[in-house]
Design a protein around this nucleic acid. Structure first.
Lengths: 252, 252
DNA sequence: CTGCATCCGCTTCGATACTG
DNA sequence: CAGTATCGAAGCGGATGCAG
């Protein structure tokens, strides 16, 4: 399994040499909430073949993104978990999630959805200015097993985690309704009224959810500075040199 | 050229469906400093085939990442430039550059280097706390033509741009010596003394370069919170359930 | 000369089967 | 459960051709 090489001395090239293959980033995303076994990964990545998955895991372990660990006591199995270089990908994934939101659209009927995929999304769009006063446990009902997300006040605003927190309230949702609640597409009171979500404990913790997140994309800097965005580029306007003429060495 | 589809309702999946193919992100990187023609892109991306490049360009235009524009007056040619969704990739690229720095290492002899690849790198590692007092024009000597980068004080600390700025000083460097200067691997006085760089104007602008950038990677949050990073994961420790036993529906 | 389209040999991928 | 082996299909790199 030879490495992909672009033969460029550039940090972005180094990154895509490691991350740019099929499945690689999605595989790493699966390891963010916690360690996973080979079969867990294969089951949650529909369409990936065993050999490709094994190859990816070996490469990523070799590069120091993930580590293989043997479970000790009862479940004698091996799990894969993020290593330091893999954990350092969090800002990359969050920016990819922020950017990818504009293409999310509506879910196609044949598309899968795993509740854990919301974890980093909620972390990405959590407002740093807003801190929840009540700690909330969210149970997302899912088919093989439920998935829990804890929303509480942290040192840097809203804290979203899978780690257990003491919670004053608990809400049970289906599918990606938590996402709809967070960006205001699903009204909290309405969802409670029609039984779409079920709340126990302090209901204000659930009512506060829409204020804790901000899904709006950042403004385009080009449309701020200049008037006609269609005429301008990101940095320079045009390179009007045609091929190699006499102005070759002119450094102004 | 059918789209890559992972059949997952997830913003990260949407992002890698568009960006995850070979060459795509490197192609977009080439458009960051300004518009480029088809042949420019093909020349600067060694190894890419015409058909793949044409396919990528068509797809990216279709998705709204880039736009095709016909040059008006003398050079009757078409150029590709970033559109809004392509410009919005800047944070993604910067985080990929920040992450990829740990794998940059030394340049292999067969690896290419383009001065423009340093632009976003310098922007990524520019310290927000430090603002240069003198504006500096950097001319990087390159083979087909030189490349210019302007380092000046901006509203958000150090400003690095290809756009022309009024400059109090000018320095001429070779290859990636600007990178070495910025992270302190090449001493300014020493480089001047041995003729490796040539300075005109206020020499303090060049001497200030190492203070304007910080290439250190951010600390691993895991190694801060806990004592034994080898034993812990990013979020949860282990999922010790073995296959499907009776605890399937227990939500604690 | 630029901007592709076409063809060809090679690598990679996806699906299934098989094994320790 | 954790992979390895196999095989047809698709994607890719390189060369060539061709229209504007």
């Amino acid at each position: 399994m030879p490495d992909i090489r672009y033969a460029q001395f550039c940090p972005l090239t180094r990154a895509v040499e490691i991350l740019g293959e099929r499945w690689t980033l999605l595989l790493l995303r699966e390891l963010v909430p916690g360690p996973q076994r080979f079969s867990d990964l294969k089951a949650r990545l529909p369409g990936v073949s065993s050999s490709v998955l094994a190859g990816r895991l070996a490469r990523l372990e070799d590069k120091g993104l993930i580590a293989k660990r043997d479970l000790p006591a009862p479940a004698a199995s091996t799990v894969y978990e993020l290593a330091e270089a893999g954990r350092a990908l969090r800002p990359v994934m969050m920016e990819l999630i922020r950017w990818g939101m504009r293409f999310l659209g509506e879910p196609c009927p044949e598309e899968r959805f795993e509740p854990r995929w919301m974890l980093m999304g909620l972390q990405t769009f959590a407002r740093r200015e807003a801190t929840p006063t009540c700690s909330l446990r969210v149970v997302i009902a899912a088919k093989p097993e439920d998935f829990e997300i804890h929303i509480s006040g942290g040192p840097e605003g809203t804290d979203v985690s899978v780690l257990p927190r003491p919670s004053q309230a608990c809400v049970r949702t289906e599918e990606f309704d938590l996402l709809l609640l967070a960006n205001g597409l699903l009204d909290v009171g309405e969802a409670i009224a029609c039984g779409r979500i079920r709340v126990e404990g302090d209901a204000r913790a659930v009512a506060a959810i829409p204020r804790l997140f901000d899904f709006r994309p950042p403004p385009d800097p080009e449309s701020i500075h200049r008037g006609t965005p269609a005429q301008t580029s990101m940095e320079r306007v045009i390179p009007p040199r045609n091929s190699r003429n006499k102005t070759q060495g002119a450094t102004r």
